[in-house]
Design a protein around this nucleic acid. Sequence first.
RNA 1: GGCGGGGUAGCCAAGUGGUAAGGCACGGCUCUGCAAAAGCUGCAUUCGUCGGUUCGAUUCCGACCCUCGCCUCCA
Length: 467
Amino acid sequence: MSLSFFNTLARDVQAFAPLDPAGKKVGIYCCGPTVYDFAHIGNWRTFVFGDLVHRYLVFKGYAVTHVMNITDVEDKIIRRVRETKITLREFTDQYETAFFDDLKALNCLMPHYTPRATEHIPEIVSLIEKLIARGIAYQATDGSVYFSIEKYRGCGCNYGQLVKLNFDEMRAGERVASDEYDKESLADFALWKKRVPDDGDVFWPSPWGEGRPGWHIECSAMSMKVLGQSFDLHLGGEDLKFPHHEDEIAQSEGATGKPFVKYWLHGAHLLVEGKKMSKSLGNFFTLRDLLAKGFTGREIRYLLLTAYYRATFNFTLDGLTGAKSALARIDECVGKLRALANGTPDSGNSWLITEFTAALDDDLNVSSAWADIFEWVHEMNKRLVDKTLTSSQAAGELAMWNKINSVLGIESVAEAESPAEIVALLETRQAARKSKDFKRSDEIRDELKAKGWVVEDSPKGPKLKKL
RNA sequence: GGCGGGGUAGCCAAGUGGUAAGGCACGGCUCUGCAAAAGCUGCAUUCGUCGGUUCGAUUCCGACCCUCGCCUCCA
């Protein structure tokens, strides 16, 4: 079986074949953050999903170019800039930095390109000029430039590729008052927004006067600049299908006359504690909120990667606690394999990688892949107890695990060195145990626990673990 | 109102026209001074409800209920 993805464009699972004639290079564009605030756990689900696609394609041997845009000019940003009285760049920088810190905390690979909208104004302007030259964009009396869906359709193009649209049945927009604009048609969307007093210093010159780009056009301009007029994969949250992605298709195909993207992948949203995330319910978590509660980026990443990306996922704090236990189970097993591994890796028993690949090939069925991994852990544990695993077999299993982990990205960090004070207490406790003073030894155990260290007695002596 | 996802054990979550993966939690056992950790082991006669097709349905079809998303700048 070969790699396949559910393509929103086809509304079906399709075998993946890159546009590259050599079948090697793959371009991915994933809609990135709007840097007006910290990204929340729902945003992170989408970005971790993007990272999984990136890593799995590398695992499959493709030469991946991953692009993620930074939307650093937009209504909410401008409003905050006006309120805080600092420059646009000063404002967006703090959230952009936070975004990349969080991305790292979740062990996501850094995309190869992270273009900022404000640094691609010339590309955006030239794309709009092309659309105007082709007669499918126009400057309205309000000074803004709009995309004409009617003209676009008149050229034989299809508006409504990702979602079924029925304009007659649509309700008038609730977020944007339609009477604010002088668009020819309600469905038309802005490519270039004319400067208004509230914009302050946030504007750029253009052939249509001072203003700023619309949201959709920036993604078209930046994705095509880096990946070319046609590329393989475009990812994003399911809410972006319409209008954002539909409009990207219209602008790009309208300007180039070529198919824009071959595969569109959309990640589902998540619920938190069974409810839609909202600030009033207190279930609105940023990554920082969760780290402050003592969870690690690794645990959060694991939990986000346990569910199929196209299904709504219920993210809970209990689930996060469970993730800690599940990871510990894997760590324990891998740790034992490391202790045993030696010599030339013997990869005779490699069923796991076959099953793992089959699961992920099937539209990234991670749940099934985890089931295989835990079955492998079970088997390894059994063989470790039975002593039927040779050191070279252990090395082979470990090598395979590392390959799988290059996709999952949940490698454990090296254990911290125990401070001298803690080691001294541990030695005192051992002396007490030796003289059968268990009361004293239990007291020291409690004391260590209070300091954040757990003692585990084993036949080979006590082990220290950081809480 | 239109369009599109979902409803599987206490919780999370795979899956299939032939009798329910995996994880967490929980119980038993091994080990242990006691613990902890770890290991082993047990844990859904049943897949939202009601009908239909079928030798057989959780899986296909229909109706209904519940839930989530989009419907013009929300991942």
